[in-house]
Computed example of a mutant assay.
Amino acid sequence: MDDHQLLRYSRHILLPQIDAGGQDKLLHARVLVIGLGGLGSPAAMYLAAAGIGELVLNDYDRVDLSNLQRQIIHGTDNLGEAKVESARKTLARLNPDITLHTLDRRLEGADLDAAVAAVDVVLDCSDNFATRFAVNAACVKARKPLVSGAVIRFEGQLAVFTPGQPDSPCYNCLYPTQGELPESCARNGVIAPLPGIVGGMQALEAMKLLLGIGETASGRLLLFDALNLEWRQMKLRRNPHCPTCGVGE
């Protein structure tokens, strides 16, 4: 690291769990953020600020006025713009030293597999089951850690899946069937700061995975009740018959 980086990341370097060696790991890390909405906005911003060397940003939507209540990476001037481009501009201003890649398309099949295989950690910040199941399958196939978040109304969820580790479940173990989401933020609403809380925790878990520090949410589902400011935790077990990660995967 040069003097500029030593000063920029000095508050990380002061932490004995990170130090200069850990910050160097972050500077050489590569993270894929799928979805640049309510969750992806704060997650990508914190990862960029923290000095993740390469961020791969994926979304195929455009910025809409209704997004701005919670999707803080976008602004009024970005209305109608591709979310990946809007996000790229914001992150480049936030930290011009990192490398940003944008994928303005739906990632599917071999394209998704290649994008997942090329990174160290994947953040699923999407808002539909089809994407979540596809991303999970790609992570299991490539044995890449997956940090999954979800929010609606006043409720948030966070889970970490670490394929390749003994007894680690996957997203398909938690949700055995795909189907359609019965509820969504567009239909049911979401309080503005909630995606920031869960998205920020996704960034935190990703950094812990990259640094190999602390205890991650692997094998656990964290449930947040924002109205009563309560966290609950559920232990997750690997389903040996899971069609994605079970025997005969």
Rank of each mutant, 00 (worst) to 15 (best):
A138P: 01
L227A: 08
Q17T: 14
V33E: 00
A150E: 15
A159K: 08
N95C: 00
E81G: 11
V190E: 02
R232A: 09
E85K: 03
A50F: 10
L100T: 15
A203K: 02
L47N: 10
P169Y: 03
L236K: 14
E54Q: 13
E108I: 14
A206W: 09
L6N: 03
R238V: 13
G199D: 00
G51K: 14
R232W: 05
N78S: 04
Q165H: 09
E205H: 15
V56G: 05
A117K: 12
L100I: 15
G40M: 06
A217C: 05
D113T: 00
D104Y: 08
V121Q: 03
R153V: 09
V122M: 06
G22Y: 04
E155F: 13
H28I: 05
G179K: 10
R232G: 13
L94M: 06
I152T: 01
A29E: 06
R30A: 04
L57Y: 01
Q23C: 06
G164C: 05
C245L: 03
I213P: 07
G179M: 10
L112R: 01
L227V: 14
D104T: 11
T177R: 12
D64C: 12
R106H: 02
L15S: 05
L222H: 10
E180Y: 07
L57A: 01
S148A: 03
M207E: 05
A115R: 04
V56I: 10
P243T: 09
P243D: 07
V119F: 01
A150M: 09
P195Y: 07
E155Y: 04
A142H: 07
V122F: 09
K89F: 03
R11P: 15
A87R: 11
I34H: 10
T216V: 08
F129M: 14
L158M: 15
R62M: 06
S168C: 11
R105F: 10
P243H: 06
I52H: 00
G149Y: 13
Y175V: 06
N58Q: 04
G196N: 04
V56Y: 00
S10G: 14
P96G: 02
I152Y: 10
E81M: 12
H74C: 06
L26H: 11
C139T: 06
E54K: 05
S168Y: 01
Y60G: 07
R232C: 08
G189F: 10
G38V: 08
K144E: 11
A159Y: 07
A20I: 10
L209F: 12
A134W: 15
L7C: 02
N172A: 12
V160L: 01
N67I: 00
E108A: 15
L57S: 12
G37A: 07
E81V: 13
A192Q: 06
R93D: 00
A137C: 04
G246T: 15
S126Y: 12
V140K: 02
L227C: 13
E180N: 05
P195W: 02
R153T: 11
M201E: 03
D113E: 12
L79S: 14
N67F: 04
L100D: 13
G196Q: 09
R93L: 08
D111C: 12
A50N: 07
Q23P: 11
L227Y: 10
H28A: 11
A114G: 10
